[in-house]
Design a protein around this nucleic acid. Structure first.
Ligand code: FES
Ligand code: FES
Lengths: 141, 141
DNA sequence: TATAACTGATACTATAATAGTAGCAGTTAA
DNA sequence: TTAACTGCTACTATTATAGTATCAGTTATA
C-alpha cells in the first residue's frame, strides 16, 4: 500500500529544495539534478504545484520556480491531496456503487476513524517542519 | 491509496461469515453467494487463510471451511499481513535501493511514526469485535 | 460404485493505477 | 538571434490488483 506516490514524494523533495532557497528562482533542471528526479516527470509535478498556488514560476531564460506559501502552513496532506486526492485508507465508498453487502459494513466506521487519525497526524507535518529537521540533521553529521 | 485490497476485504467478509457460524463447515460456494464474492477469487483467498491457520477445511462433498482461531484474537492487521505484507504507508525503504537522496529523508521517521500508530489502531479491530458490531447493528435495524 | 459437491493448487488473462517520456509552442535574458 | 527556460499535453511502459479457468484429488450418499 502506498500513502505516497512518486508524484507526492518528488513534490515534497522539490518543495524542500525550494523552501531551502526561498527567494531565488530554481529551474526544474536544477531541482531534478539536485534531487535526482526524472526531469520531465518533475515538470509535470511542478505544474501541479503551480495550479495549486504552492509555487510561482518565471518563464524564460533564468526563470524557474519559487515557493509562494509559508512552508509552515504547507502540510504533507495538502500535497497528497493535490496528487492523489483525499487520504483514504480504503476506497470502496468511492467506487460509485456501494459495498456489495453494505449491511455488513461495520468495517467502514473503523476505517473512517483511523483515516481521520492519519489525516490529523500528517497535517502536523509541514514542509517547514521537515526543513527544520533536515537542517538539524545536517548540522549533526 | 488502498489500505485494503480486495483480497483483504473479501477475507474479512468471509471470516465474519465463518465466525458467525462457528461450528459448521461453510463451502466456498455458500460464502461467495452470501457475500457476493467472485467464487474462484474467494477460493484463492480461503487457501491463503488455510495456509495461515485462520481456518481449516474439510474436503469432499459436504465439506467446506470452518474458523480455527478465536475471532477476538484475529485482528485486521493479521489479515492485511497475509495478503499484502506488513502495513507500510510508503515503501521506498522496501525497494531494495534506498531513497535517491537519503540524507534528505527526514520524512521517513514521520512516516514510520504514523505507520506505527495505524498498526496499533488496527490491531485492536478484530473479527470478533466486528462481529459484535454487526450483531448490534442487525438488532437495531 | 458412480456421481455430485466439495477442496488443493496453480497458471492464465484483464484492468487499472502509477511512473516515466517526448515534443511542440511560447517567453525572456543576454 | 539563440540558449535556457516554462506551459501544455499526448503518449508509452511497468506494475499491482482483480478476476478466470482448469485439472487433480477427496468424500458423502444413493
Ligand atoms: S462501505 Fe465499504 S467496506 Fe463497506
Ligand atoms: S528513505 Fe524513503 S522517503 Fe526516504
Amino acid at each position: 500500500m502506498k500513502l505516497f506516490t512518486k508524484h507526492t514524494d518528488y513534490a515534497i523533495r522539490a518543495l524542500l529544495e525550494l523552501a531551502g532557497s526561498k527567494d531565488e528562482f530554481l529551474s526544474a533542471r536544477q531541482i531534478a539534478k539536485q534531487q535526482r528526479i526524472p526531469y520531465q516527470f518533475l515538470r509535470q509535478i511542478l505544474q501541479g504545484l503551480i495550479k495549486n498556488k504552492l509555487v510561482i514560476s518565471k518563464e524564460g531564460s533564468g526563470g524557474g520556480f519559487r515557493i509562494d506559501k509559508d512552508p509552515d502552513l504547507m502540510s504533507i496532506v495538502d500535497i497528497i491531496v493535490i496528487f492523489q486526492g483525499n487520504i483514504q485508507l480504503s476506497d470502496c465508498m468511492f467506487r460509485k456503487k456501494l459495498c456489495a453487502n453494505r449491511s455488513n459494513c461495520v468495517l467502514r466506521k473503523q476505517i473512517n476513524r483511523i483515516e481521520k487519525l492519519v489525516n490529523e497526524e500528517f497535517k502536523s507535518v509541514t514542509i517547514g517542519s521537515l526543513l527544520k529537521d533536515l537542517k538539524k540533521q545536517r548540522r549533526r553529521f
